[in-house]
Amino acid sequence: MRASALTDVEQKIITFSHEHFGQRAGLRIKAWLELTHHLQNQSLPLQLSEVNNFFNQLVFIDDIKLWGEDDYWATPVQFLNAGGGDCEDFSIAKYYTLRELGVDDEKLRLIYVKSLTLNQFHMVLAYYETPSSMPLILDNIDGEIKPASQRSDLVPVYSFNATNLWITKGGVTGSQSVPAGNVSNLSMWQKLRKRSQHDTHHPIINLDQ
């Protein structure tokens, strides 16, 4: 992949991560920013695949170990600086990177599910070509992007994007999603937005876009 020229702001973000979180953190941020430049105006399948593969290189780390909290949703740069995170962090980073690449918010949903394989709650990112189409699932457990019809191991609980919140029934397909109001009702999402707004060191991803 040929690196595209980074902006002065992006270079400062890399330097900040390097100085405060170490050389590897700076290199991860640099690789991410170069990836977003490289994928601009590329095909959607390539964007989905490259973004999914990039973040799936990071390691899983429990919130309590990493942040000292039972449940903490990190910004994409916090995730990269730490070098890992839990399933919410993987999904959120993929979501905002795809949004930065111009994918419409209405085509993306973060889906909170029960993983039958792990017997625990989990989060994945779904891409919908149309509101009624079978979504593609981007996941850190199963790294291969698959239609939701091939992910019978996931039982949905609810889904959301930057605007709306749904209670999801009838499988991860979301074909029986029931509107549950505005995403402002989701407290963890609001905490994430505020955290990003107040972080002056890496204003790359606009959480309100």
Rank of each mutant, 00 (worst) to 15 (best):
D139Q: 03
P45R: 01
N56Q: 04
A3C: 15
T163P: 05
E144C: 09
L118R: 15
V59D: 14
L192G: 01
P156C: 00
F54T: 06
Y158W: 08
T7A: 06
L165R: 02
Q57R: 10
Q42T: 06
T163V: 09
G171F: 02
N185Y: 08
N182T: 13
I61Y: 01
I64C: 07
G102C: 10
L6R: 09
T130G: 03
Q40Y: 12
P203L: 08
Y112T: 02
Q197N: 15
T36C: 07
A148Y: 06
P179I: 01
E69S: 13
A5K: 10
E69C: 05
R99Y: 09
T130C: 05
Q57C: 12
D71Q: 09
G85A: 04
S133G: 05
L44G: 00
G85K: 01
T97H: 01
Q120H: 13
H20A: 11
K194I: 11
I13H: 00
R24H: 13
C87E: 08
Y72G: 00
I205Q: 14
T15E: 15
S132E: 14
S43K: 11
K194M: 11
Q78C: 01
G85C: 04
L186S: 01
L207W: 13
Q47Y: 00
D104K: 15
Q209V: 07
L48C: 08
F79I: 11
Q42R: 15
Y112G: 05
L58H: 09
V178P: 04
S115D: 06
T130D: 02
D70H: 11
A93H: 05
L27F: 15
V103P: 04
T15I: 15
T173P: 05
L116N: 10
G84T: 04
V178H: 15
A82H: 13
S152W: 03
E50T: 14
A148S: 06
Y128M: 02
S115W: 13
S49L: 12
K114Q: 13
H122E: 05
F79C: 07
F16H: 11
Y128K: 06
L108S: 01
W32V: 11
Q120C: 12
L192F: 02
R151I: 00
S177G: 14
W166I: 00
H20P: 02
P179N: 10
A25C: 04
G68F: 08
M1H: 11
Q11E: 14
A25W: 01
S187A: 15
Q190M: 03
D142E: 13
A82W: 07
P156G: 02
K65G: 10
A162M: 13
Y112D: 00
S159M: 03
F16R: 12
K30N: 04
L44H: 02
Y72T: 01
P203N: 09
M134I: 14
L80E: 09
K30I: 01
S175I: 08
P131V: 04
L154T: 07
T36A: 03
K146A: 02
W73G: 03
A82I: 10
L101M: 13
Y72F: 12
H38Q: 12
D142H: 13
L66H: 00
F60L: 12
